[in-house]
């Protein structure tokens, strides 16, 4: 639940594809695991994306930037967990599947939507070299930087309820005390 800090910085992984589904994020055969940490080595193992090598590209990543409909497919919360145990608590995309997005906030993680133009801008300016992102939750801004490129600050918004969940440490604690 690393998204609860007011500001945090991390390395960005760009995944240049629409419709990355939950089977690609964590294949179904690992659903028999009953601990989250057991999922760690298998994140994005079956991702169909040219030039992507999970062993090389995932280490040290804290943020994923991707295109449209990220997390479509199954309801499995193993998908956000597989991200979480790899230290990735923030995914930025043009849009998300409903269940995946909800699961992220329910776990106290963040799934943030930016416009197609903004996502395109991020890909064209930052996806080639190493890129880091500074997130300021109080100011609600992302600042992307990469050596040799002009940095870019973008405002973002999340709903009040999503923020409540991030701050409460998730939906179980919030619901049990509220209903």
């Amino acid at each position: 639940m690393g998204a609860t800090h007011e500001t945090f910085s991390g390395k960005v992984l760009f995944l240049d594809r629409d419709d990355i589904n939950t089977d690609e994020i964590i294949p179904a055969k690992y659903l028999t695991e009953i601990t989250k940490t057991a999922l760690k080595p298998y994140l994005l193992e079956d991702l169909k994306l040219e030039g992507f090598d999970p062993a090389r590209d995932i280490s040290d990543t804290q943020v994923i930037v991707t295109r449209s409909n990220f997390g479509c497919g199954s309801s499995r919360e193993h998908a956000p967990w597989a991200l979480e145990v790899n230290g990735i608590n923030l995914v930025i995309a043009q849009d998300f599947s409903r269940i995946f997005r909800q699961n992220m906030y329910n776990c106290g993680m963040m799934a943030v939507e930016l416009s197609a133009e903004q996502i395109e801008q991020l890909f064209s300016r930052f996806s080639q070299g190493p890129c880091t992102l500074r997130t300021d939750l109080a100011a609600m801004t992302f600042t992307f930087s990469s050596t040799g490129r002009e940095s870019l600050t973008l405002p973002f918004s999340i709903s009040g309820f999503d923020r409540t969940l991030v701050e409460a440490g998730g939906w179980v604690e919030f619901a049990d005390s509220s209903y």
Binding site: S74, S75, R76, E77, P80, I99, Q102, N103, N106, C107, F161, G170, W171, V172, A175, D176, Y179
Partner: peptide
């Protein structure tokens, strides 16, 4: 369909958001 956390809250409180 919901994720595990929603399921937990469903089991515990009979509610869902």
């Amino acid at each position: 369909g919901v994720g595990t956390t929603d399921l937990e809250v469903g089991i515990l409180k009979g509610v869902c958001s």
